[in-house]
Each structure stands twice: as structure tokens, then as C-alpha cells.
Design a protein around this nucleic acid. Sequence first.
DNA 1: AAATGAGGTTAACGCCCATTAACCCGCCTG
DNA 2: CAGGCGGGTTAATGGGCGTTAACCTCATTT
Lengths: 215, 215
Amino acid sequence: MSDAHVPAPTSRREQILKEAARLFAERGFHGVGVDEIGAAVGISGPGLYRHFAGKDAMLAELLVGISERLLAGGRMRVEEGGDSPAAVLDALIDGHIDFALDDRPLITLHDRELDRLREADRKRVRQLQRQYVELWVEVVRRVHPGPSESRARAAVHAVFGLLNSTPHLGRPGSLPGRTEMAELLHRLALGAFGAVDAEVEGAVVEGVAASRRAG
Amino acid sequence: MSDAHVPAPTSRREQILKEAARLFAERGFHGVGVDEIGAAVGISGPGLYRHFAGKDAMLAELLVGISERLLAGGRMRVEEGGDSPAAVLDALIDGHIDFALDDRPLITLHDRELDRLREADRKRVRQLQRQYVELWVEVVRRVHPGPSESRARAAVHAVFGLLNSTPHLGRPGSLPGRTEMAELLHRLALGAFGAVDAEVEGAVVEGVAASRRAG
DNA sequence: AAATGAGGTTAACGCCCATTAACCCGCCTG
DNA sequence: CAGGCGGGTTAATGGGCGTTAACCTCATTT
């Protein structure tokens, strides 16, 4: 999970990153000016250059950071709950939900502004993302051995979309609070995964039966 | 409002919109220049202003257009298959999947660049989106009467996230082809909705039982 | 007490880019 | 064949914005 338990210097740097993340998520990387970011932390304009090489550097640090933390968290959960695959999947889902609910701006940036990065950073982020996906795919396939790998991977992508849907919410009040939301998302994710190999009543789909035989 | 109901010449204008959509989705609204859009359709630069009032106008027309078509399509399906709620939900899901799979750029823009619109257009788009969501909520609640309205709405949002996940795909080849993908997404969506009120084995959640009694 | 450096400030520079001006050409109508 | 006018072109304009320069001021160190 997050390292919130460590007091953390909460230095300028981090404060800036936090505000920048919020602003980037709200109005897009190109849509927010350096002056705005500065204003958000009380200093103004080029003062940011004492802490970062430039606007791009902030985005890069944000995206690499989030990807690393997601992957690290996922690996931790996989190692810890080694007994039951289903329990591991539960843990992965909960972890991702915590992330989506607590760090909305970052989740948003994660798949919105990736292409604004320099080649090197972008490759690194993509690699981390891929590893995270594959982590999930392995666990999902242990719980649901039926479907082919490509189906499992597609399902994982889709469930990420589901879990990351919280940023796109409507007006507050029309939706459940955080704890109920977390529980609901968990259910939805499990329900989706469960449907990957389940035969929809009455209509057995060829591909599924075939891949199950091929196992 | 738009004069889209007129058959439409299918000419320049639409060609421009199509390319603009692609570019906006790829690099973001602020990330793509007018000259690029022009180049994509063979003319260059300010020639676009013979067809649109400005860059903003293109985005506005794209977003309003997509929202209107989604809502119109949804309403049509609801009216047509009036017999079984489950059948209507199936139709809604299929319709949305077709959209997500065929008009990826638009789906992306749909929830990425909404805030770049002028107040009036943005309000219109949001209203259309809300109506579309409520359409789904009603149908879902007919199929799954248990959960509260806010839960149903959250579930709909989440399933949208699931269905719209296709743009974020990895490298081609690691994922199923279009027809298998459509079938898989349909299953996942149904599985998710089915899990909204299903009691996860062993653990009955208070809220669900309560809202079911309250009907 | 002088020196240093971290962290700010405002002013200036320069590029990018949307939009506008001014001008052009070919078609279709009268 | 005159005259619009739809659809383009290139050049100019002007604002926004990232980045750099030059300068300031405390703390802390020596």
C-alpha cells in the first residue's frame, strides 16, 4: 500500500508534485501553466525550477512513481498471500481499489498523459505497466484456468477500466461513499472475472469450450 | 444545435472531423496543431477555417455528436426490445461495445477532453451523458431490482469504464480479435452487473439485504 | 563577521500556434 | 462573359507560456 505510515518529509518537492498531479488531471498537461502550479503551492512561476528541471520532469516523476508503486504493491501482495490464488486476487483488487480511490489524479494521468513523456521515460512506464498487467494475468489464470491467455489479459485490461472508473464520477451525492464504493467495485471486478469462463445460461460459446478442452 | 439530421454531404467537413478526432485522441486537444489537422486531410493550415469557426468548434461538434448518437442509439434499443428487460440490457451492451470498438478515438475524447469546451457546449454534453447513464440505470434496475439506485448508478459508471477500456490496449497480437473481444466484453459486463446484488458466498452484506427489503 | 547556498522574485526572451488578412483560382449561374 | 462564391494559399499578427537571467535574502557554516 502507500507509505503514508512513514512521516515523510512532506517537503516542497512533494507538495509541488501533489498539486501538479491534481492540476494535470483536471485540465491536462498542456492545459495547465507553470504559473498555476507555482500559485497552488504559494510560490510563483519560475520558482519551481529550483526543484525540477522543467514541467516535463514533473510529469515524468509522477508517472514513473505511480507505475512503480502499483507494481511494487502488487508484487508484495502476491508474495504475502501465497496460499490461495483467490485470496491473492482479492488482495490485488483491494490494493488497486485503494489506489484508484485515494490517488484519483494519478490514476487519471496514468493513462491520459503517457505520450507527453520523453522516449526513455515512456518506455520505462510502459514496461512497468506491462509487468503489472502480467502479474494480474498470472493470478487470474490461476483462479480461472479455463480461458486463453489473451482472453485473460483482455479481461484484466477491462477490469482495470472498471476499477479506474471512479475519476469519471457524476456529482457527489448520486453515488455511494468511499467504503461502500470499495466494496461494490470489488464485487463488480470479481463478477466480471467470474464471467470470463462461465457459460452464459443456455448459450455455450464455442471458443470457450474449445479453449477449455485445449486447457 | 447541429444540422446532423440532414443526410450530410459526407465530404470535407466529415473527413476533417474524422482526422481531428484521431489526432485529438492520440495527442490530446492542446497537443495537436491546426496545421497538423489540415495536413491530415491534404489542405494546410488555416484552410480549415472555411469549414469550422475554430479548433474549439471541431472538438465541440465531435463531443456533442458522439453524446447525441450514444443517447439516440440507447433510446432506440430500449424502445425496440420492450419485452424482456434482460434483452434490452443485452442490446444496450452490444450497442455500446460496437461504439467502443468502432469509434475508439471518439470514446477516448468523450471522457478526456470534456473540459476544453465552452461552458454552453460542456453543459449540453454533460446533460446528454447523464441522460444516457440514467437510461442504463433504469434498465439495470429492472433486471436487478435489489440494489439501491446509487449502487446501480455506480455500477453503470464502472461498466462503462470496462467497456471503454479497449482504447488502452496493449500491443496487437496479445489480445483477441474484434468479434471475440466483443463477446468477451459482453460477458464481463453481464458478470459485473450480476454481481451487484449477488451475495458473495458466506458474506451477506448488510446494505444489500436492507435495500432489498426496502425494495 | 564573512561566505555560501538554498529558495524566491520579477523581467525578459523566444517559440509555438490559433486566428486573421489579403489574395487567388475555377466552377456554375444568369 | 461577368460575377459570385466555395475552397484554398501564404504572410502577418498577437497572445500565451516555458524557460532563462539577474538579482535578492535569509540561515547556516566557517
